[in-house]
Amino acid sequence: MSDLLETYVRPEKNPGTACKGCGLRLAHRNVLEAIDELKLSTGDVVWGTGIGCSGRQTFATWRGDTFAGTHGRVYAMATGLRLALPPEKRLILTVGDGDAFTIGFLHLLNAARRNVDMTVVVFDNLGYQSTGGQYGVTTPLGSRTDSSPYGAWEPNWTQGGFDVLRILKEAGATFLARHTVLQGHEPVESLKKAIGNRGFSLVQLIYPCVTHFGVQALETRNIATVYDWFRERTSDDLAADSNTHFTTGIVHDAAGSRPEFSVAVRDFVASVQKGGSRGGTN
């Protein structure tokens, strides 16, 4: 890890300000490992972030070029940025579950529809943790949080037969995976595939928030106990019961099956410039 940090992380941003024991560091490391194993350098990747713990902890850590968007809008920004970047440049976004699946979901769906070449890594801490612990659309039903003192009861998008990744699949995403950070190298393998896909990829990476989720929902300040709960709940069978487990694996791999957006736009523009039939004249 120290090598990875030296290579890829700005020294003034190391070790960062995440809480002691926070699983976000593991998630962050997974992404760096994937980049490293793909032999990408700082100049090969542009790194964007959203709002929340994931954004605050990862913005400007990347030694290369980096940006942070307003809450939930970074997918729209990345759509514009993608048009300006050379196709080989990798665009990685580390964002939270709230950023991606609630406030930014409209933009996320449209980025998937267009198959814009970006890798969205959702650092999923099961709710709104940077604001002190409120339930979101990945918070397990029944969880106590500061805004669900009687237990979270609103339908979410990970249980009761719903899977937010299936919605993204229908929307046109070409690579989708879900993991927890307690699965060793498995998330890294999926992240490598996601980053390699020249299209819209999303990896949901569930990690333990010890400060809020651990204390409020699991009622413990013991970091090891929190991690045990996450480990026990992790299943590597995607067909397992999502009401009781984090079902993990590659949900959808259709890399290369659809035209990538920025390539398609460039082709379209070139066809108009050649007097193509769709172009019209002036």
Partner: peptide, 26 residues
């Protein structure tokens, strides 16, 4: 397209200006 530029129809105005911002930082 005639001058090699890109036209996008955004999902809403919020996205529209964010797409512009993203293009601009590129």
């Amino acid at each position: 397209p005639q001058v090699g530029g890109y036209y996008l129809q955004a999902e809403d105005e919020n996205a529209a200006l964010h797409i512009c911002n993203g293009g601009s930082i590129g």
